[in-house]
Design a protein around this nucleic acid. Sequence first.
RNA 1: GCCGCCAUGGCGGAAUUGGUAGACGCGACGGAUUUAAAAUCCGUUGAAUGGUAACAUUCGUGCCGGUUCGAUUCCGGCUGGCGGUACCA
Length: 861
Amino acid sequence: MSDQRKPFPFADFESKWQQHWDEHKTFHTPNPGDEDFDASKPKYFILDMFPYPSGAGLHVGHPEGYTATDILGRYKKMNGHNVLHPMGWDAFGLPAEQYAIKTGQHPRITTEQNIDNFRRQLKSLGFGYDWDREVNTTDPNYVRWTQWIFLQLYNSYFNEETQKAAPISELEAQGWSREQIDDVRLAFIHEAPVNWSPSMGTVLANEEIEEWKAKGETVERRPLRQWMLRITKYADRLINELDPLDWPESIKLLQKNWIGKSTGAEVHFDIEAHQVTVFTTRPDTLFGATYMVLAPEHPLVQEITTSAQKEAVDNYIASCASKSDLERGDLNKDKSGVSTGATATNPVNGEQIPVWIADYVMMSYGTGAIMAVPAHDERDFEFANKFELPVTQVVEPNKGSDWQGFTGNGVAVNSGFLDGMKTKDAKKAIIQWLRDNNKGTFKVNFKLRDWLFSRQRYWGEPFPILWENGNHQAVPESELPVLQPEMDDFKPTGSPEGPLAKATDWINYSESSKRETNTMPQWAGSCWYYMRYCDPRNTDRFISKEAEEYWSGTSDASSATGMVDLYVGGTEHAVLHLLYARFWHKVLHDLGHVSTIEPFQKLVNQGLILGEDGAKMSKSLGNVVNPDDVVSEYGADALRLYEMFMGPLEQVKPWQMKGVEGVSRFLAKVWRLAFEQNQEGEWVLSSKLSHQEAASDHEGAQTEKELLKVLHETIKKVGEDIERLSFNTAISQMMICTNTFGKAEKLPVSLMPDLLKCLNPFAPHITEEINSRLPIAAANTMLCNQDWPTYNEAYLIEDEVEIVVQVNGKLRGKITVAKDAAKDEIEALAQKDENVIQHTEGKTIRKIIVVPGRLVNIVAN
RNA sequence: GCCGCCAUGGCGGAAUUGGUAGACGCGACGGAUUUAAAAUCCGUUGAAUGGUAACAUUCGUGCCGGUUCGAUUCCGGCUGGCGGUACCA
C-alpha cells in the first residue's frame, strides 16, 4: 500500500533506478585502451573532496558539493564528454585509531564499516559516480603507491639552478658523500623543536595545532628527531604558479599569506668575538638600530650573556619555556625581556648597541634575532618605551605625520650616506653597501616552514625506510607496500618511536637493520588520490602514462596547467591539503611522472550549510540535519534539488525544512504534468498529455507557441546556468516552465522530454521514471544517455517587445513596439503616453536616450 | 591589529555588460474544492499616502557623499556581520 501522504511515489522508484545504474554501470568511465573508449570525446575531470568516513555518517554539507559536481558531470556526459567523476575514502586518521585504543577493535574494521555506511548513503542519493574507480587510502594497493611517491621525494633534491626537483643519483655521480646528500633530500631527517601532543602521543604539523587544541588536546614544544619534507624549496613556485589557476582570489591570497614571502636583507652584527645575523625588511633603517633582540632560544644567548646578567637571563628563559604558545602569543601582548649585558656593533656606524632577549622575537622566523629600530617599528617602539631604550629617527614621513613609530615609506634622515634617499632607493643602496663590506646581503624570507611529515601513530602509512648503524635507506621498491604489523595494543607509547615500536618482530628487518616506526600523516593519502582515480587498479605504476596524459588533457590543444578541470570542496582546506597536494604534484612533474604543473585547474568552495537556527550545525545545539531522514521523508531528488535551490553554491546559508517541502511540491507538479491518479489510486498517464502534434485551432496554436517559448528559454537558461554553477536560478527557470506547462489545457507529449532532460541532472530518479513511462519512442533510452537538448532561437524571439519609458530616470510608462522598431518611432510613441505627457508638460526636452529593446529615458527640465 | 568576503521584503534568495529592484521558493492572508481535513488549484502580498476602483504619487537594496540621463551594480568615506591570520622583524 502506497503512502497517500507522499505527493509522488519516490520510494517506489528511487532505489529501483539506483540499482539499475549500479548493475548496468551506467556511469562507468572508459580509459584509453578500454574497448568502449572513444578518443573523439573530450575529457572532463570533475573532483569532489573525498570524505573521511567518520562514524557519524554523511552530513548535509557533503551532498551540497557532491550534488553540484554530479549535476555538472551528468550535464557534461549528455554533452558528449568522457566524464571522470569518481569517489573514494580518506580513511587513515586519528578517530578510527582513538576508537581502537578505547575498544581494542582494529581500525581497519571500524574504517570498513564506516565506508560501507558512507557508500550506502551516497548511493541512496543517486550520484553518478564510476564506482569501479573507488579508491581507499588504507588499501594496501594504494598505500604501496603513497609509499612509492614518498620514495620519489626521498630520492630527490631541489636543484636551485633549474628550480626543479631532480634525482639524487645526479649528486652521487658527482661524488657527493652520504652526509651531503642526506642534507638535501626532499624527505629528510631533522632534529628540531616540534609540536608534541602529550595527550595524543604524537607530533603535529604547525598547520594542525589549532584544530586539535580546539578539540581539547594538549600541544607543547619539544625537540625531536623527525621526518620532514622540504616544501620551502617550492615556496616561490607555490606562489607564482597560482597565477594561471582559476581559483577564488581569496584562496590564492590565503595561500600567498600562508607562504608569507618577504623581501629584505640579512645583516651581520658582531658581538665581541661572535657574529649574529638578523633579517630585516627595512635595511634602510639600519642607522636607527639602537638595540638588538635575540629570541630566548637563540643558541648564542648563553655565550654572550655577562655574568652579572646570567641569573636574570636564565630566569627569563625558564619562564618563557613554561609558557604555552597561547600565553606567549594571544593572551600576552605586553612586551617582556631582559638585557644580556652584551653589546653588539652596528656595522654601518660602529655604534655599540645593547643586546636583549625577548619573547616577541621568534626563533622559528628569520634568524631568531632582530635589529630593533624603535623609531620605525611598532613592536620595537613599544619595547623601547617600556625599557627606556634610545629612539632615533631615520625616516622622514612624506606627509607631515609624526615620525615616532612611523612604519611607512619616506625619506632617509640621520643615515649618513643614505640621507635624502627615498626608502626604496635607500634599501638598494644599503644592500649594496652591506655586500661591498661583507656585512650582509639581499635576502628573501618565508613564513612557510618545512613540512613535518612523521607521526607516532599506528593507523597511517609506515615509512618505507630502514635504519642501519644510524643511517637510513629506502626499502626496495619491490617490497612495497610496507604494511603495519597486526597488533592488539594500539596505545601510543608516549615516546617518539610510536606504537609500531612495540611490534618487535616487525621492526627487525634483518640482523643489522630495523624498520622506521613512524607513520605518515593523513595528508599523505589525500595528496595524490585524484591521480589514482585515473587508473585505480594499476599494479605496475601509480598511474599509467596513457591515463595520465589523457586525463591531464595534454593530448589535446588546450593549455591547461591543472589536471583536474573542476574541484569542489570546503574552504577549510585552503592552506593545508591544497598546498600539500600542489607540492607533491610539482615534485612528480619535475621528475617526469605527470605532465601538468598543477593538480587543480578550477577550484570552487561550497559555502557552509548552517542549522535552521542560523548557527553552525553541532550535536550540542541539536540542529544537525541527517540526510537519511530527509531522503526517507522527501526522497533523494528533493534533497538534491533543495540543496541546490538554497542559494549560490559558494554562499553560507541556513537550512529550512520548509524549503525542502517547496522543492518537493515542485517535483510533484512535474510528476502530475505526466500522470494523474485514477479511482484505484494508481498513477496513469495524464489525460491532458494530448497525442495530436499540430494544434487544430488558432487558440491552440497560440498556446503551443507560448509553451515552446518557455521550454526553449528553459533549455537555454538551464544550460548556461549549469555552466556557471548557478544552480538555484536554473531550478527557478524550470519551476517557471513547469508552472506554465501545468496551466495549459493540453500539453503536447512531445514537449516533455526536453524539460525532463533539463531536470535530469538535478533530479535523476523522477525524470528517468517519468520518461520511461511516456508513450514515446525515446522512453526506452535513459535520459542520462541521451543528448542535451538544443534550443531554437526562433522560438525565443517575440514579435513585439515592451519598452519602459522614463522621464528624468523615473519610470512613467510602458509602450509596446515591434521588435525591430526604429529609434524615431519609439521616441515618438513614448511621447504620446499620457502619463509621460503629464510629466513633461511645461518642460523642455533636452535629450532622449533609447536603449533598444529596453527603455527610453526622456531628459527634460 | 592586519588581510579578505558579505549586507536587497516577514524568511532563503533574483536582477549575467550601469537600464522596469524584489524573479523563483517559503511564510502569511483571502477564495475554490471537501460533511470536514489533508492534498490540490486560483488570487493578493516591500512601505507609506491619495482614490469606491482601475490607478497614481512618494520613499525604498546597511549609513553618508560622489560620478551618470539613469547606480543593488562604479568611486570615496563609514557602520555592522562572517572567515582567515596574528608580536613574521
